[in-house]
Write a protein that binds this DNA or RNA. Sequence first.
RNA 1: GGACAGGUGGCCGAGCGGCUGAAGGCACCGGUUUGCUAAACCGGCGUACUGGUUAUACCGGUACCGCGGGUUCGAAUCCCGCCCUGUCCGCCA
Length: 473
Amino acid sequence: MIDIKQLRENPQRFIDGAAEKNISVDITTLIDLDEQRRLFTRQREEHRAEQKKISKEIGPQIGKLKGLLKSAGEEERAEFETTLAELEAKPVALKNEIQRLDDSVAQIESKWKALLLQIPQPADPDVPRGTSADDNVQLRTWNPKSYDLNQSFAENRGFEPKTHIELLHALELADFERGVKMSGTRHYMMTGNGMRLHQAMLRFAFDLITNEHGFTPMSVPVILREECMVGTGFFPTGREQAYHIEESQRGAGHDLFLAGTGEVGLMGMYADEILPGNKLPIKMATVSTCFRREAGAAGRDTAGLYRIHQFDKVEQVVICKADEAESRSWHKRMLSIVEELLQKLELPYRLLQCCTADLGSKNADMIDIECWMPGRGELDANERPQGDWGETHSASRLYDYQCRRLNTRYRDEEGNTVFAHSLNNTVLASPRILIPLIEMHQQKDGSVAVPACLQPYMNGLQVLEACTATTTA
RNA sequence: GGACAGGUGGCCGAGCGGCUGAAGGCACCGGUUUGCUAAACCGGCGUACUGGUUAUACCGGUACCGCGGGUUCGAAUCCCGCCCUGUCCGCCA
């Protein structure tokens, strides 16, 4: 959520910010509603103050009269009733007026809140302006010494690559048909060594981030209340991307939603809290199952492990003090952890500075990491893919946008409560990361070499071969 | 799932429908005293919005006693719905 005070002071910044992100929101209406809300709220407060004052003056008198009324005789009764009516006339008039203002404020406020939640965080000035993902800017690439990105896979390795789908089938690492049979399109199963590899990847990444980089290991709920989804900024805009468990239909008090990332649980845990300043920065990592409906992606990446409804992800999150320099430095550090990971896995990658159009509404800045996937991309004359980059990681910098929504604050040195800054980044998402892994490490004989860093997590296995697969027939 | 009990400030805990933003205690901060520490004593100590002003200093107003609604001139206190917690029973990885 943006700071409404900043919007009042400089609406143009937010109008431009939304336009640059290609997000259409009615900021003029929000400003109108904001003014009305403040006006009516102030009037209501003035009336209430008056009411309280009167109440204190005549309240006890009313109470006393009502008491006397009970034991009063006929003549006295009439007199008391008249006095009572006189005393009550003014507060009753006030009460009606307050009731009217209450209704106005409630009505305005719900529209105001709904709009406010939709206003995107403007991108930072150093984020390239753009109209689509095509305008993202490549920052740098990395490749192992043995792989020249300017040459084709065949030129590098001396044989034509298979796609990950072909490799998964041949080595019996995954079963798409039965996954689809049970759950429908975009579902799959990892089988035998495929599952071992999947787990090895996750554990390797989790150990790296927690043991080597001091992030606190966490398990988090992946079934969450709507407040968490709104608080973390995934709702209302991304509502159709989340699976919705309509428990209220069965009589429960609230619905639940499946998280699309562990970030929801990690950030949600500190909602409505004021943290002691010395607790920051909070560095946490979780490994969790992620669920995405992939609404609007019909027809895209339908085959293989690229775009699926359920996967597992190691996620890193940092909650730090409200300091731009500190935020920016954490962003870099989180990215460098991923670079270390990918280098250990010997996977070529590139860093992409996302342009304004690709940021999403909550981010001030986002850097994606894409791995080279030889089995992806346009088909050549022989109907074989030419290879392409595929997104495997995404590092977001949000300033206080998320903490403001979540109401996560900390107490600074002067004792003030301040909204914290938050950042998040993928450490590793699997099975998507298995695409570059098995495509890049495939060998001429159709086997796949297991990178050294994963071997301890694979019972020491060095090569995945067809005959080593121990899966169901 | 069934039966009870209960949700009050950082924590514990009191609270007759008006004098309660809320007693008391603990913790914390400042001060006095003090060889040091401790103790004792004095003072301070919630969040948010909003106005006086341009200001995180100061003064005022409003709201907040799980959440939402209702009764009332007036609600922490009465009523209704929901959420959550605890205990017992049942079921269960």
